[in-house]
């Protein structure tokens, strides 16, 4: 049942892409209205990706797409290949077989130097933050700009803007060792967002955090999706993360404050899909409603704990 869902979704995506390729002339007018032809290309696409470490298969024919502006939640138990998937997108690992496309370009066989350019359009948030211990919060967030030789006044402006986004302006001069787990993740998010990445990847960003802090991290992901139009991959195994990301949306009220509202019964404003993985394969792809109704025993056990 779950596999059927996946096939149906993929088939629908493929056919829509083919239609566009066939009728380019007819599509021009449509794209002029949409105002952005590039948005039709998936931000990230995996085509039958395989990867093994020695004799252990980590990914076994994984295929999926992340559309522009979409948040894809990759759900699954420990060791099912979730984190490996985002490392492959960044080129930190290379697949044994299959193709990985970023903005329609096949990056599978890119060299490290070519990948460095691709990585500029990505932001990555690691499990424990992965902040540079020897650098202050300011220097961590400013890292990418310092590497690019941006003037210090501009760097400071951007760092303060990003720390304001994650609500951590007071920690600007602290060292990573002085921060709590949640603060480290938020600094990691600020660092990843510098330079305006098109795609942000979260690798279990709420693991080991208390519920309010985990909620804050999810709110940041929602803000990125709804207010900054950023595509993202959100790797997690926690169901409350899925619930926040699929049922709430961010908006700006009349006072200019960001507010989070629950989508109603008939209103669907969240651009979030779920991909469920098991033993290196996608066993489900679709919306959270479809996931809840799925009959697969493994998925049921994962969702309800029994």
């Amino acid at each position: 049942m779950a596999t059927t869902n996946l096939e149906v979704t993929d088939a629908a995506e493929t056919s829509s892409t083919e239609d566009l390729q066939v009728s380019d002339a007819a599509a021009d007018s449509t794209f002029a209205e949409v105002d952005d032809r590039e948005r039709i290309k998936p931000a990230i696409e995996f085509r039958d990706v395989h990867l093994a470490f020695d004799d252990r298969k980590v990914l076994d024919g994984l295929s999926f797409k992340v559309q522009r502006g979409e948040t894809k939640i990759i759900l699954g138990g420990s060791g099912c290949g979730k984190s490996t998937t985002i490392k492959l997108v960044l080129g930190l690992l290379k697949p044994d077989a299959g193709q990985i496309l970023v903005n329609g370009d096949d990056i599978t066989n890119y060299t490290e130097a070519e990948m460095m350019k691709v990585r500029k359009s990505f932001g990555m948030i690691f499990q424990e933050g992965a902040l540079f211990d020897s650098l202050s919060v300011y220097d961590n967030v400013a890292y990418r700009l310092h590497e690019q030789g941006v003037p210090e006044e501009e760097v400071e402006q951007e760092v303060r803007r990003m720390l304001h986004f994650v609500d951590l302006e007071d920690a600007i001069d602290k060292m990573p060792i002085e921060l709590s787990g949640g603060m480290r993740r938020r600094v990691g998010i600020a660092r990843a967002l510098v330079g305006g990445p098109e795609v942000v990847m979260f690798d279990e960003p709420t693991a080991g955090l208390d519920p309010p802090t985990a909620r804050t991290i999810c709110e940041l992901a929602i803000k990125l999706r709804d207010l900054e139009d950023v595509s993202s991959i959100f790797v997690t195994h926690e169901m409350n993360n899925v619930s926040y990301l699929t049922s709430e949306y961010a908006a700006v009220n009349e006072a200019g404050e960001v507010i989070f509202e629950k989508e109603g019964e008939r209103l669907c404003l969240t651009n979030t899909k779920v991909l469920m993985m098991r033993e290196g394969r996608a066993i489900f792809s679709g919306t959270d409603e479809q996931l809840q109704k799925n009959d697969d025993p493994y998925i049921k056990r994962f969702l309800h704990g029994r």
């Binding site: 460095m116 990585r119 990505f122 990555m124 992965a130 540079f132 211990d133 890292y143 990418r144 590497e147």
Partner: peptide, 18 residues
């Protein structure tokens, strides 16, 4: 080694530094 196990090397590569 500590940078590798705390994913700082991966973070460095992800931020576009060799």
């Amino acid at each position: 080694g500590s940078m590798v196990v705390s994913q700082q090397i991966d973070a460095m590569r992800a931020l576009g530094t060799d």
